[in-house]
């Protein structure tokens, strides 16, 4: 593994020194490109009270390529599929090298507050979210209790 670019070092330092409220991102002890992330379910969302684990990996050509991010904790959300993959434009074609780990995590947090069933990744969830939102929200709360609240 090549030496860690200055950009990654700087971003890591800042993430530790001034963490984003409601988000913790800690680099792995053996791999500085791999981050253990915990996102707190935003207030007034069906995910409130939950702690969601994610993994974030910075590929070799980061920041020219987007970081790879995935939910580890199961979550009932129209833009997140069974494997935890996230449908978010800035992780794909709207990625810009000027964006940072911090902005990515903030966008993910915002996605939990404002699900977008019109650009779905989990089709069945998105479908229910559109035709019966209150039932979908009940499911999301149920999943949050079941998978994101142990201890």
């Amino acid at each position: 593994m090549s030496a860690l670019p200055r950009r990654i070092i700087k971003e890591t330092q800042r993430l530790m020194a001034e963490p984003v409220p409601g988000i913790s991102a800690v680099p792995d002890e053996s791999n500085a490109r791999y981050f253990h992330v915990i996102v707190t379910g935003p207030e007034d969302s069906p995910f409130e009270g939950g702690l969601f684990k994610l993994e974030l990996f910075l590929p070799e050509d980061y920041p020219m390529s987007a970081p790879k991010v995935r939910f580890i904790t199961k979550i009932y959300h129209p833009n997140i599929d069974k494997l935890g993959r996230i449908c978010l434009d800035i992780l794909k074609d709207k990625w810009s090298p000027a964006l940072q780990i911090r902005t990515v995590l903030l966008s993910i947090q915002a996605l939990l507050s404002a699900p977008n069933p019109d650009d779905p990744l989990a089709n069945d969830v998105a479908e229910l979210w559109k035709i019966n939102e209150s039932e979908a929200i009940r499911n999301a709360k149920e999943w949050t209790r079941k998978y994101a609240m142990e201890n």
């Binding site: 050509d61 020219m64 800035i90």
Partner: peptide, 20 residues
């Protein structure tokens, strides 16, 4: 570095500015 990554992704005349 950016232009090389974009070329590797198959882009050419459609590469845009690095800013968001």
């Amino acid at each position: 570095a950016y232009v090389q990554v974009k070329i590797s992704e198959g882009l050419s005349t459609d590469i845009t500015c690095m800013a968001q």
